[in-house]
Amino acid sequence: MKLQVLYFAWLRERIGLAEERVEPPQEVASVADLVGWLRSRGAGYAEALADPGRVRCAINQEFATLGAALAHGDEVAFFPPITGG
């Protein structure tokens, strides 16, 4: 399964990337699985994704929960709670 993963705000800064294409192992089926796998990829990831309670997610530009299922080709974004307006 190939995914396009986007990071915003302090997640982008800590991971050091705005966007990347990833191909996680087969057992990665949900957003929570993806978070767990990404955390193992380096210190920046581990720090940025340490507390899932501080991270929000979207799949294909729609808000999603940690339990949401992933599909090949999905655009998955991770970002902090919104502070707009």
Binding site: F8, A9, F79, P80, I82, G84, G85
Partner: peptide, 14 residues
């Protein structure tokens, strides 16, 4: 609209 913009549209302030 402004109440929802603050929490529902993806913007982040630094």
């Amino acid at each position: 609209l402004i109440d929802w913009l603050k929490v529902g549209a993806p913007f982040w302030k630094k």
